[in-house]
Design a protein around this nucleic acid. Structure first.
Length: 777
RNA sequence: GCGGGCGUGAUGAAAUUGGUAGACAUACCGGACUUAAAAUCCGGAGGCCUAUGCCGUGCGGGUUCGAGUCCCGCCGCCCGCACCA
């Protein structure tokens, strides 16, 4: 091999050697700490983008560092090959998803390994493999049996363009997360995962793992626990009640109406028989189909008097029932206490509807008392029967107790989070394993009949709507309960259901006797480290947790949180803007690799910014990275003969000159800083410190060249080797090659050289995540 | 409105955790080598000033022998949630 630096030659050769030698095969050897790094799966578009390069280089760097530290590492990948994005991409090029995927996954796999990623190739799998989605369906059945999955005709978000239902979280500002078109709402049978019931665990669990503070807060707000009181209002002329939820019961004497969400399930009954029933129902329909964001734009919008009344549980007053469009069905009970004097929305609504406004909490300041303004603060109660005069904070507990004693109320909390709508009226995902029978209703597919295969032949994708519905061979079946002819459920699972348990499958994707290999999962999960973009870390992570909370409750998993530690990476920008085809500023990783070599691209990606901040792609910086690595290449090669010489052991050798001592110290301090940088996932600092150390190393090597002694050659050799070990996680190919040229027989990828030659990480058995938690407190 | 993050050169950013602010790098300027350019190497550089010096980590206070770092109060930017019962 020639001595000029040719990244492509070196990189291809080392990638092949790593693969052939199987150094990245997962090991569960006893007596070693473990490290499982999870990366959110790539959508198999067939071509990497800069975001992938950044994401996966971070993951790879971490795992290579951990291997060098003597950890058993699990690092592999699964392809997110089911779901709407794949189906749409295939339609665009006029292929079936299956045809399209074959090519793309192959190409994508090559590109991933081309980045030098140290994946365990044997463990790579795809979500559209029936061996995988069989178990996704199995999870569905388990949750269905337990009541965690239910079918409901409640109003759900709907995208006309994608022709499918959407989860609440997949609607962004009234628009579909995929096509960005305005969404609407429909009332069709859809499948839901009960998130409400596991909300307390989801909230508590947040405290147990290391998560970026912003993401933690986001999920906490998202779950949104509101403690309060459920109060029953008896309906006049009926033996039923309306239940409202309130967080401010101290204002209950100021109730002048009860506001019902247009979706409120009792409304049809309340309206039936009234003269305007048809008109009212039409109006309700109108509100129900409008996306929530639209409806909430004007909370003071006119509602409807129902001409029905309920009775105030404390005063016995007649309180009118109204439909208030600003009231949300999924929050609390979908019915609210209308206290216009002490609630902004109720006030606006009361003004529009001409309802009375009754002040019951007085701030005790004369000029504000009696004014028309809404008073939201504390004060003392007025006009509140036997509770008048109490401070509002005292009244909160006193009135609650009073109502509870009268059996008119119960304490509780409501969660802002919505149950997760998981059914999609689209073709390319795991079919929901349910059979609809005219006699038995929806019946679970027996476990033995799994997987319910997604047909890949005879699918007509040109017709609008769900192609599965028109696929007779798929649809026609028998009822597992009564044996009569029946129809399959044509909806498929939301893409996040597919990925929700992928990290368990990563441990052993070839396991046949269950959804996961229990030995492997007990050993590896929860994952020590998880890296993704912001959406992964917030949205996907949340869904993963929901599914796991249920599996844990059902005793199906040995853990209750998927990850010990998550971090997110920023975006890669070009000229300060997001890379996009429409702006024409897309930088293609394959071009960069051809120009600079993988190691330089990796180095530049890690060096450009700390992982969590955005950075601007810059050619100058890539060139600088290349220059640095080129310098290392020639620098180390030049030293090979120097380090290889054997000098006689001369008694006259000074023990250690000042220069030796100074350099030895610089090496020690530098290594410590570099190690700390790796531990804290601050790779930018690692790169800077590596460059600094290299500079010192080069200067010292000139000194050694001028006056070589056994001792300083020994020190220099140690320094060069340490330097290569420390640079290895970021620039693995170059360092392997140089390491070999120095005569080291055992590959860098093959052994725990770091622990051997430099020292153990300060945290010992602890993981990165735990260390970060420890720093926080 | 609520919550979270962040403010240091032209730029990405360092600062041994309270001890010489701006390491290292990019861009920039100058020099060397070249017929020339590129590459490479060497040197310069926070601001003000002729200079001794003075001022400098968003702004204003405070604690301290000493503050980018700790405390209080403002200002500005980014992100998330939202008329939440």
């Amino acid at each position: 091999m020639s001595d000029s630096y040719s990244p492509i030659t070196i990189e291809k050769s080392w990638q092949a050697r790593w693969r052939e030698s199987g150094v990245f095969a997962t090991r569960q050897t006893p007596g070693k700490p473990r490290f499982f790094a999870y990366e959110y799966p790539p959508f198999p578009s067939g071509e990497l983008h800069m975001g992938h390069v950044r994401n996966y280089t971070i993951g790879d760097t971490v795992t290579r560092y951990k291997r060098l530290q003597g950890y058993n590492v699990l690092y592999t990948q699964g392809f997110d090959s089911l779901g709407l994005p794949v189906e749409d991409a295939a339609i665009k090029v006029g292929k079936t998803p299956a045809q399209w995927l074959d090519e793309c996954i192959e190409k994508m796999t090559d590109e991933l390994f081309g980045l030098g990623l140290s994946y365990d190739a044997e463990k790579i799998f795809s979500y559209h493999d029936p061996e995988y989605y069989k178990w996704t369906q199995w999870i569905f059945l388990k949750l269905f049996e337990a009541g965690a999955i239910y079918r409901s005709k409640q109003w759900s978000d709907w995208c006309e363009t994608c022709i499918t239902a959407l989860a609440f979280e997949q609607v962004e500002d009234g628009r579909c997360w995929r096509c960005k078109e305005q969404t609407t709402k429909t009332q069709q049978e859809q499948w839901y995962i009960d998130v409400h019931s596991v909300a307390p665990e989801l909230l508590d669990g947040l405290e147990t793992f290391d998560f970026p503070p912003s993401a933690k807060v986001l999920q906490r707000n998202w779950i949104g626990c509101l403690p309060g009181l459920f109060v029953e209002f008896p309906i006049e002329g009926s033996d039923t009640t309306i239940e409202v939820f309130t967080t401010k019961v101290s204002a209950i004497y100021g109730t002048t109406f009860i506001g019902l969400a247009p979706e409120h399930p009792d409304l049809p009954d309340l309206v039936t028989g009234t003269p305007d029933a048809d008109k009212v129902l039409a109006a309700l329909r109108d509100w129900c189909t409008t996306p929530l964001v639209e409806r909430m734009k004007d909370p003071g919008a006119e509602g409807i008097f129902l001409d029905r009344y309920c009775t105030h549980p404390l005063t016995g007053e007649r309180i009118p029932l109204c439909v208030a469009p600003y009231v949300q069905a999924d929050l609390g009970t979908g019915a609210i206490l209308g206290c216009p004097a002490h609630d902004t929305n109720a006030h606006r609504f009361a003004v529009t509807m001409g309802l009375p406004i009754k002040t019951v909490i007085s701030p005790g300041v004369p000029e504000t008392a009696g004014s028309d303004a809404v008073y939201l603060g504390e004060g003392h109660l007025v006009d509140s029967g036997c509770h008048s005069g109490l401070a509002s904070s005292e009244a909160e507990t006193a009135i609650a107790q009073d109502l509870i004693d009268r059996e008119a109320a119960r304490k509780g909390e409501t969660y802002r989070v919505r149950d997760w709508c998981i059914s999609r009226q689209r073709y390319w995902s795991a079919p929901i394993p349910i059979i609809h029978c005219d006699h038995c209703g929806p019946v679970a597919v027996p476990e033995a009949d799994l997987p319910v295969l997604l047909p890949t032949e005879g699918v007509d994708m040109t017709r609008p709507g769900n192609p599965l519905e028109h696929h007779e061979r798929f649809m026609a079946t028998q009822c597992p309960a009564c044996g009569r002819p029946a129809r399959r459920e044509a909806s498929t699972l939301d893409t996040f259901v597919n990925s929700s348990w992928s990290y368990m499958r990563n441990c052993n994707p070839h396991y046949h006797d269950g959804m996961y290999d229990p030995d492997a999962v007990t050993y590896w999960v929860p994952c020590d480290f998880d890296i993704g973009g912001t959406e992964n870390i917030t949205v996907a992570n949340f869904y993963f947790r929901v599914v796991l909370k249920w599996l844990d409750r059902l005793g199906l998993t040995p853990m209750s949180e998927p990850f010990k530690s998550s971090i997110f990476h920023g975006m890669v920008l070009k000229d300060g803007r997001k890379m996009s085809k429409s702006l024409g500023n897309v930088v293609r990783p394959t071009d960069l690799i051809a120009e600079y070599g993988v190691d330089s691209v990796r180095f530049q990606s890690m060096w450009a910014a700390r992982p969590d901040s955005d950075y601007n792609w810059s050619d100058e910086k890539a060139a600088a990275a290349r220059r640095f690595l080129t310098g290392v290449w020639y620098g180390v090669l030049d030293l090979v003969p120097v380090l290889g010489q054997t000098l006689p052991n001369m008694d006259g050798d000074p023990v250690m000159t000042n220069a030796d001592k100074k350099f030895a110290n610089a090496l020690h301090v530098g290594s410590g800083k570099i190690q700390a940088g790796y531990e804290r996932i601050e790779f930018q600092a690692v790169c800077n410190d590596l460059m600094l150390l290299w500079d010192k190393l080069k200067k010292y090597s000139d000194r050694v060249r001028a006056h070589a002694t056994r001792r300083n050659i020994e020190l220099l050799r140690r320094a060069v080797e340490q330097f290569l070990i420390m640079l290895n996680p970021i620039a693995p190919h170059l360092t392997e090659e140089l390491w070999g040229r120095l005569g080291n027989p055992v590959m860098l990828a093959q052994s725990d050289h770091w622990r051997d030659r430099i020292g153990q990480d300060r945290t010992g058995q602890e993981t990165v995540g735990q260390e970060r938690v420890a720093h926080e407190h």
